[in-house]
Design a protein around this nucleic acid. Structure first.
Lengths: 217, 217, 217, 217
DNA sequence: TATGAATGAGTGTTCATTCAT
DNA sequence: TATGAATGAACACTCATTCAT
């Protein structure tokens, strides 16, 4: 049954009879290790092949475990995507909560670079997850909302920084800023090699800092 | 734009043995009609479900024809995507070639709005095709290059318009402009209803015009 | 997704995306042949191995066709069971409608024998289907009701024949008569070889005729 | 009756390498408790879902124990069925050995009711086990013979009671009697709610008593 | 004696593609 | 040129059983 499968609501069993994803239960040390292995393998494989093309088989092979084990921890392939989406949203929330002061000074530029750089790093890790949730492949509405919220949080934080500096911070401006951030990350991740990440971050950060934080000067 | 579609090169067939797309042959009236039906059905179905989730069965049903017929016109599902990607690139090329003068005057603003609006319209039609080629799902390198070229063409045209106005038009600036355009289109298509297209275009066009073409003033 | 699969309502698609059991469509000659092959293969395989143990693979092998073809005609294994259950109910309905006069005469005995014999023959063919529907493996309530109705029809017909003869025909009596019929059929089918069918029918028919139709004399 | 269960013969293990049912060993108090829990859980789960559909996981959950523990006591799922089949056969043997005098008097009727009632109760408990062994799902021939023997014992006991009363007791008559008993039990168990057990037993007992034990009068 | 974790062969189902008419 | 039918490799998912602690 392949396509016929529907995602489990978290905390409930996948089907009437079988499948008990381990995210509800208490996990012992070994269980936690396996869960982590699967999550990171999933991330890697989704990144390499894309969510749709990725096979559960690829994932378990990458995690050096078995099909059976996979379904001990996740109710379905989509359930793994869900778990990763939650992780990703958490990362972006953390970033949002951690954006320092950004003013027109060199220190402000440095902070901007740090933020952009971290934004890119997360995007590089979770790119396919983000794309999947953007394309409504995450059936669970609540999960895709997490992503939107995290991005919104980042956007409002930037707005507050712009306000302090006295720079324009209306919705349209913020929209452009976020578009710049996202698209740059996207291009960086999808086109270039890992190597250029730092450089690209520097360039984008400079553009962002000059264009939005010092333009008023 | 449909006439822009050229047959796949022999040897690019999906399998060694099968598939005899009718696009090499001269098509009679009926054949042309069927081809058109399939292309438009493909566009519709890809838009509704996404490329991966779309089934050939969905497409032939939407086109009110049969599986057998599909493979008379396309060598594979991907071949249809290819054909649509070429159509889409052609549309954007046409748009690029058709961008009038944009200065800081109201006429410039009007032209900007026209361009953004058309950009959105094309994006709405071909969104999934664009996303598919961006995500390297189009195996044929050459095709995905067409997309990049078309976008580049638009970008350089904007650069030339900015130059004439005396506004900044370095690569970073153009990158931001294109990011704005693309992301806005993406959000508009994926989030909102068809209804808001016009409004959104107006807003984005205004932002773009003010931010890039009149900033220097 | 295997166990997760739920039966298609007749006339509707099995899942959102796939599976179009051919019982709704018009079938051409070839299609009808294939459908018949699958039905009879299903009957055979269910009889040999039992519904649960039978594999779709066994069925398609017996029908000399492919998995894909199976799902062209049935939405699932259970859907095939459903189809056979309907067939079976129809056979019993036909039998019920075809029970002639049964009195205490030799002609009555002959008719009883004919009925019992046909009852057995149907039971031999459809035994596993009957057992499956009795054990609530047919999810669709409506289908399992068909079976109950068919048996009830036979029961009431017997009751009317008993009444004409002046023999007792209260519910308890009819219950015993039907129990006799069913259990004998069951034993005959599950224990003995095909060979003894005729003999067994004669014996049971005699018991039934003497015990119920001539007892009053 | 649980004590009646004897360990599987060595060599009847499910696989060549695995499974070490603890039934060969002497069991301490705790072990006996666990064994009992598993047997009763098995009975419950088989009754609720049917043997085939029941999962080992369901059973261990119902018994509040673990998979590992299950295989400490049983070599396989079928081994549990075997154990239950032996229990069930023992129950019916006990019933057979405990059928008192049944004559045409009210006392006879009372005894008939007692017997039918107990027959039903056992059937209610062990129904799925009985059905499984009837349908040859118990691989071990010897076990399914136990069931046949127990039923035969009941049948011959009834025959002897009928003889004493001077009522017909030929094979055909006994066959009908047993068919009545079994089918009634089956219907009672599979169709009705637990509540009606007593009533149903009374009705069937009355039919049986009147029809077979007082008919001659 | 008990258990949570792991396993992987096996199963139902899908769907792009090909064939026969 | 069109089509209904057929195909079978591929895939997600299950579950009886075994293992390590």
């Amino acid at each position: 049954m392949q396509g016929a499968y529907k995602p489990a609501k978290p905390g409930r069993r996948a089907t009437a009879t079988g499948g008990a994803p381990a995210q509800g239960r208490e996990l012992r040390a070994q269980g936690k290790r396996t869960l982590a292995k699967l999550l990171s393998a999933g991330l890697r494989v989704f990144a390499e092949r894309g969510y749709h093309v990725a096979r559960v088989d690829d994932i378990v092979r990458a995690a050096r475990t078995s099909h059976g084990t996979f379904y001990l921890y996740f109710a379905s392939k989509e359930d793994l995507l869900r778990a990763l989406a939650i992780e990703c949203a958490a990362e972006y929330e953390a970033l949002a909560g951690d954006i320092g002061e950004i003013d027109s000074s060199p220190e402000g530029a440095a902070e901007a670079e740090r933020v952009v750089s971290r934004f890119f790093a997360i995007y590089r890790q979770y790119g396919p997850v983000i794309r999947a949730w953007m394309e409504d492949q995450v059936t669970e509405r609540e999960v895709s909302r997490l992503g939107v919220e995290a991005f919104t949080h980042i956007a409002t934080t930037f707005a507050s920084r712009l306000r302090r500096v006295g720079a324009p911070h209306d919705d349209a401006t913020i929209g452009v800023l976020m578009a710049l951030l996202e698209r740059s990350a996207y291009y960086q991740v999808s086109r270039a090699s890992n190597a250029g990440d730092a450089d690209a971050a520097v360039t984008v950060a400079r553009t962002l800092h000059r264009g939005f934080f010092t333009a008023a000067a």
